[in-house]
Amino acid sequence: MPHLVELKDIYKIYHMGDSDVHALDGISLTIDKGEFVAIVGSSGSGKSTCMNIIGCLDVPTSGTYKLNGKDITNYTDNELAEVRNKMLGFIFQQYNLIPKLTVIENVQLPLLYGGVSDREQRQRAMAALRRVGLESKAKNLPAQLSGGQQQRVSIARALAGDPSVILADEPTGALDSKTGREVMRFLQQLNREGNTIILITHDNSIAARASRIVRVTDGKIVYDGPVEGDKNVALQAAAGRDEEG
């Protein structure tokens, strides 16, 4: 069985005038099906860049990226679009819903671009909305929903296409801590149901919900292992258990 995600020696270098910024400085990482990985690190450490490459939204300066065993490093734009559509589901910090489309239309988008029939689009989008508990808001516009609800819509949209990997970049960043915890509980539940989740956060207490921590500093992986092995996250994990227990 190939790894679901396999990054090897990934560099992402931005040229800023005279100096080069190594946003990713030689990252190698493998993630398997069913994992719940949190990529953590302080702001500017390169987490988003890493996620964008895993999410096929961006291409590395060098290195190879295999998704489900296929080397996609040299894919064309349209082929990458196809990969995003079929294999990846995104949850963004800013929800990224299209404001003039209704909730259900937003959720249908990946299916629309996947060539699914109108009927099936509606059925599957409705099912996804039911999973996040928002089927009653299907005909609303995103602006009529609270932040937490909008983030759940974006989760429904990520789920609708039945992706192999769900990528969440700071999904709780724009939410208050209570709503944030709800979203995290939901992601945990999705993981228990078998979904592979890659979570990006600078918040150790959020990262504590994951089962594996990848800590990035200055574009390099400085820790990769279970939650207990990362001092900061382990501390938060213990605190979190006290709070909830």
């Binding site: 999410g55 734009d77 679009a81 995104f90 990224n96 988008l109 671009y113 949209r157």
Partner: peptide
């Protein structure tokens, strides 16, 4: 532009 970015992230191709 942002809407186009969202659509592309969800798998919209050139032709779409």
């Amino acid at each position: 532009t942002r809407e186009i970015g969202i659509r592309k992230s969800l798998g919209a191709k050139h032709k779409h």
